[in-house]
């Protein structure tokens, strides 16, 4: 399986094993990780990822084919994690093995850009608690139910 959507932790070593190929002089691995982004004094503590799994896999396989055709990549491995990911966790790994480095770098860049743009996967922020006194959101009055969002 060269394209995967999984809720299990991602490991670079496992992807690297999928890329072993004596005819490839270059292997490029891109790892996307959850960063501790800050916005308006708040800090992301985790990201929740979800996917339309069946369509996402179809799109990933199409990207794999395009990377092989356009860049001459000999091995491609695309894996995206879903579920709740803490800061620092790997959310995506793109691996490419190709005869030369220019093709391997080009294919890896192409794949991660297209994956972000064209594959039905979504992230949503989970915020850490803001420091006391900086909370701006009004609490609903006890008699009013909180609406979603």
């Amino acid at each position: 399986m060269s394209c995967e959507i999984t809720s299990r932790p991602l490991t670079i070593a496992r992807v690297a094993r999928q890329l072993e190929d004596d005819a490839s002089g270059a292997v490029v691995l891109f790892v996307g990780r959850v960063r501790p982004d800050t916005s308006r004094g708040r800090r992301v503590s985790a990201l929740d990822y979800e996917a339309d799994r069946a369509m996402a896999l179809t799109r990933l396989r199409a990207l794999e084919r395009r990377a092989r055709q356009r860049f001459g990549a000999r091995r491609v491995h695309l894996v995206h994690r879903i579920g709740r990911l803490r800061v620092g966790a790997a959310s995506v790994i793109v691996g490419v093995a190709a005869p030369h480095r220019s093709a391997a770098f080009g294919a890896a860049r192409f794949l991660i850009e297209e994956l972000k743009r064209d594959v039905p996967i979504w992230k949503s922020d989970r915020w850490a608690r803001a420091p006391t006194g900086r909370r701006r959101r009004r609490r609903p009055s006890p008699s009013v139910g909180r609406s979603p969002g």
């Binding site: 996917a51 996402a56 995206h80 972000k116 594959v119």
Partner: peptide
């Protein structure tokens, strides 16, 4: 029928 808001994977 699937409704896909703008993608934000990666």
């Amino acid at each position: 029928i699937a409704i896909h808001p703008p993608y934000s994977g990666g």
